[in-house]
């Protein structure tokens, strides 16, 4: 099964993200999206992003509070095509 998913960011850019190559945050960063982050470890929540459609799974369980409809890209990978507001 392919691990590549389409990720639409802020309704503008469409990226192809390989879920086996690091976190969603790494992927956004490597494709020159301006990213927001602090700890990159799931505990501060600075990378908090709106998930408009699709699903993700967490590599590490986040300690920051994840409000319904939000994801923390620093510690998750996509498991389907996504639409996000970062």
């Amino acid at each position: 099964m392919s691990n590549s998913f389409k990720v639409v960011v802020n309704g503008q850019q469409t990226l192809t993200v390989d879920a086996s190559e690091g976190t969603l945050l790494d992927a956004l960063e490597s494709q020159q999206v301006e990213v927001h982050y602090h700890c990159r470890n799931g505990f501060c929540g600075a990378c908090r992003t709106k998930l408009k459609s699709g699903s993700v799974s967490y590599i590490n369980e986040p300690l920051a509070f994840v409000r319904p409809g939000d994801i923390l890209p620093c510690c998750c990978v996509p498991t389907s095509d996504l639409e996000i507001d970062h």
Binding site: H38, C39, F43, C44, G45, A46, L63, A64, F65, R67
Partner: peptide, 12 residues
């Protein structure tokens, strides 16, 4: 950052 996470948890 960790302390902040705790107050955010309480409020949420």
């Amino acid at each position: 950052n960790l302390h902040l996470t705790s107050t955010q948890h309480i409020l949420n």
